[in-house]
Design a protein around this nucleic acid. Sequence first.
DNA 1: CTGTTAGCGCCTTCAG
DNA 2: CTGAAGGCGCTAACAG
Lengths: 369, 369
Amino acid sequence: MTGNTPDGPTAPSLDAGSRRSSPATLEDVARAAGVSLATASRSLNGSSRTVNAAYRSKVLDAAARLNYSPNLSAQAVARGSTMTVALVVADITDPYFSSIAAGVVAEADQGRLIVTMAATERDSERELEIVRTLRGQRPKVIILAGSRREGDPSEEALRRELEDYERAGGRVVLISRNELGFRTVQIDNASGAADLATALVGLGYRRFSVLTGNRELKTAADRLDGFTSGLERAGIRVEADRVVQSAFTRDGGYEGMRSLIAAGVQADEVVFAVNDVMAVGALSALRDAGLTPGADVAVAGFDDIPTVQDVWPTLTTVNVPLVEVGRAALRLALEETDASVSADSDASTAPGSPVATSVVVRDSTPRRA
Amino acid sequence: MTGNTPDGPTAPSLDAGSRRSSPATLEDVARAAGVSLATASRSLNGSSRTVNAAYRSKVLDAAARLNYSPNLSAQAVARGSTMTVALVVADITDPYFSSIAAGVVAEADQGRLIVTMAATERDSERELEIVRTLRGQRPKVIILAGSRREGDPSEEALRRELEDYERAGGRVVLISRNELGFRTVQIDNASGAADLATALVGLGYRRFSVLTGNRELKTAADRLDGFTSGLERAGIRVEADRVVQSAFTRDGGYEGMRSLIAAGVQADEVVFAVNDVMAVGALSALRDAGLTPGADVAVAGFDDIPTVQDVWPTLTTVNVPLVEVGRAALRLALEETDASVSADSDASTAPGSPVATSVVVRDSTPRRA
DNA sequence: CTGTTAGCGCCTTCAG
DNA sequence: CTGAAGGCGCTAACAG
């Protein structure tokens, strides 16, 4: 069976040793092609230098034959820079973050970039720690999504860390939070929430409650503020005791709704949860309390994550093109690779125009008679 | 404003050049500590060699002072191996995969491992391509989740690619598909589905339909088979025309359900969708057709993704500990680092015991009177 | 225990 | 245009 009768052209590589064959190196390729290491290198990577066509194809052949694949680590060491983009999110299972991640990954492989991923579990100490260990990777880009709160004790340390990183040539992009003074993909949280408020008023609602995350969470605060100011424009105020804070998660929404219910819900009110996962939790809380969301109390969210079209009632929300946000983040990081001609130092900090949001009215906020 | 009056002790580091300061190297540290490169290296990494405490602390001090962070690429080149685990999934936004990813990431950073991520978008050509480009990373582990179908034309090429990779010292772990003969985290799809069938029969159901993904998808096939054989045990057969194939996605479930409805649904039947995202789509399809899921037709899924507790009716399903599956995958990859004492060549292929699944009955399958 | 010295795989001047 | 040689940051024998 294991005889070595040449199997004809069917067996392309001579029966390779099946024991620990390490990958071919560039030197192997060069030797096989009968050229120098330099020539091999120049033909295989996108060097600016040009190479004699005959040599080049000999190299390409050899590389294919040996199944050569350049060692990215070695390239990184030699070039002094990697092709890595590091993405750090709060929680991968949260649709908000997984959508953003999908966008980053999609954009990345249109540029032969590798994306690495880490999760903070919503702990800003941990976030700082992660960013610190990220330095070892020497990523070309660091994208930070969520989980930062204002006035956080580790805030300053994080900023310093990121500044050092940029000073070393890295690019950092923040998603929906620019307090730190870096490139940012802004999401128009405030005006999206204001638009939602206006739409709800237009549907006939006059009483409002809101389920918000920790107030220090910039995103949560902006959405709350936008919502209340949208209502103010219609001459409506939301009672202070109808604003409840809880975790920025599904369970947070559930708990928040429970306390709202405990305090007494009005038949004609709508509760605005500052994000969809919270809203979805709120729907369940209502149901578990024997109430019918939509009919008994209206609910609205923010983000337009995929699942809100499959809950019942389908959720009125504010659409945020999350996948696009992820792509935009990476594009923003990569643009103008050498900041040579920035007019003033603030230019590189300019957030650019925020990504647009739009209200989507569904069944959870039926028009009031 | 930009004067340079020393700001007192507030400025910890001597006003560092704000222009492109590249990270400190090990050599910088060694010099600052007044020791040799080797000593610095030995004190900073977990070398087996021991070093004089005095020297060691001098090095540690210098490293801290210079904010040194080892260049992982350089370490990889020198050591000949990386700390990278490459995870390739079909679709990051799918809760099934994002849960697994979360598990892998969680397990990874208990081992200073870095996880990189790529998405196949359910295209097996793309999967092959991804695995190929992965070689450049020289990852220590490759974890493949989903998106492979039996009899796929690129199957053989993929197998070869992965074998080469293992031959070079890498570890591959497949999730819920062992056709290729690699380490696998098995999910007990068949018996989970059979248990579900039994439970449904116990609830009083006698008529069944199933929404399945492409039959070549191992996971889909196993769940279908398990389900039907579970029914057979109760003497029940599912009509061939009540098994419809569609995409393994939410929209697939929606479309599948539509055609089931078009063919005529029975009031006393339950439709089993082979995964939760399909089931959730099915719920919406029912609703859009004016039917009430649970009451008019029962629905059951598989996976127990988080959102099924927030849809209405809450979904009966089979729980799969997805996050744990992710962790298990990485652990499996890392165990027994040198396959020195494997009894026979099949040993390394042994799937180990499959992760247990368990039926969770909820509101979408009310007990039949 | 410490320092010197080769590499690791690749890129990139610098001479031919 | 090509090849030889030095270097990237770090590790791992190998001598002291």
